[in-house]
Simulated scan of single mutants.
Amino acid sequence: MKILVLNAGSSSIKFQLLDMTDTTVIASGIVERIGQTDAITSFEIGKNEHRSVMAIANHKEALQQVVHLLLDPEKGVVGNVDDITAVGHRVVHGGNEFTDTTLIDENVKHKIGEFASLAPLHNPHNLEGIEVATSLFPNARQVAVFDTAFHQTIPVKASKYALPSELFDEHHIQLYGFHGTSHKYVSQQAIDYLKLKKSKIISIHLGNGCSMTAIENGKSIDHSLGFAPSNGLIMGSRSGDIDHAIIFHLVNKLGYQLEDVERMISKESGMLGLTGFSDLREIQQAASDGDKNCQLALEMNAYRIKKYIGSYTAAMNGVDVIIFTAGIGENSSLLRAMVCADMNYLGISMDAKANKQRSDELFEIQSGISQVKILVIPTNEELEIANQVKTLLEQ
C-alpha cells in the first residue's frame, strides 16, 4: 500500500510518499515560501536531493509542482498515478463535525469549506489540496486527518468560553485546538522513549504557526489555540493572545474595517508585525546584529511560552516532560534557551551544550539537576497521518 501524504500549511506544503508495508519513505519534500518569488522546492529520494528556487504564486501551483516531481520520468518515483492507493490530507479544522480520520466525499469537502472561516490560513489550502489530488489521482482514496481530533478529550471546563451558554450549546463556539497530529505524535514518542506509565507532558509546537498542549497520560487536556488557530502564542504572522477590546477600538475609534482587522491579526501581526521579517532565522540574525525590534520580539515570544508552561504545570499539578518540536522548536537553540532560562522554580534546567546539538532524531537537553526531562523531538505528522489512513482503510 502506497500512501501520499499532503500537509498544507499557511506558507508551505510538506509531502511524503510512503510504502506502508514497512513505513518506508519512498520520497519526501517541501515547498516553502509559497506566494513569494523565491519559493524553495526540496525533493528527496533516498540520499539524493533535488532543490529548486522559483516563483510559486499559491498552493495550487505548489501542489502541481509536487505531483510533477513524483511523476517526472527521470527524477520521479511513480510510474502511474494508480500506483498510489490513497492520499492522506492534513485538515486543520474539523469543528464538532469530524472527530476521527474520515474518507472524503462531496459532503466532507463541503463541511471543510464551511470551516474555512475558522481557519482562513489553512482550511482553504487543505481543501485546494484535496481538489487537486482528486483530479490528479482519480482512483486513489482521499482521506482527511483533522488537527482538531486529538483535542476532543479536553474537558468542558477548559474548552467552554465564559459566554452565554447558548453559544456553546447551539452554535458550538468553544476551544477546538490545533496541530493535534503533531502533538499526538511527539507525545507518544516521549512516552515510548521514557517508558512512562503515567505522564504529564507539555508539548511546544513552534513553526510559522505555534501552539502548546497539556497532555496527561497521553490525552490532551488543554491547548493554547482555541476556536480558530489565532490566539495563544506569538506566531509568524498571527498575533496570538490580545485583549479583544483592541478589535472594537480599532473599528469604533480608529475607523478600521473588520476585514482589515482580521487580515492584520492573521497575516500582518506576530513576529512579522513586530520585526518586518517573516522567517525566524532572519529575525535571530538581525537580533544578533543589534536590531532592537528583533531582540524584543524574541523576548516577547519566549515570555509568552513561559507563561503557558506555568499555567499548564498548574493545570496538571506538575510536569514530567517538556517537548520542543516543529521547524523552530527543533532548530532554534536560541529560543529554546530563552524559554528554559530562569525556570528552576519548576525544576526546569537546561544543559547549554546539549541544547546546541542538531539531530534528526530525538535528543535530551536537560541538565543533570533538572527535575523535568526536556526533549527535542522531530515531529512526523506525515507518518502519523499515513498510519491513521492505513488503519481506516483496513477496517
Rank of each mutant, 00 (worst) to 15 (best):
H171R: 15
H171I: 02
F168G: 01
P155W: 13
H172F: 10
F178L: 04
H179A: 12
F168H: 12
A162L: 11
F146D: 09
L167D: 03
I154V: 15
H179S: 11
I173G: 11
I173S: 10
S159P: 01
F146I: 08
S182T: 14
A158H: 14
T181R: 10
F150T: 00
L163P: 04
H151L: 07
L163G: 04
A162H: 10
H171A: 15
S159D: 13
Y176Q: 05
G177C: 07
I173V: 15
L163E: 02
I154S: 04
G180N: 04
H151I: 00
P155R: 09
P155F: 10
F146T: 08
P155N: 09
Y161M: 05
Y161G: 05
S165C: 01
H171N: 15
Q152A: 13
Q174N: 07
F150G: 01
P164K: 14
Y161Q: 03
V156H: 04
A162I: 06
Q174K: 15
G180P: 01
D169Q: 12
V156D: 09
H171Y: 15
K157R: 15
S159Q: 07
E170V: 03
D169V: 05
A162E: 04
L163A: 06
E170P: 00
E166P: 01
F150H: 05
H172T: 02
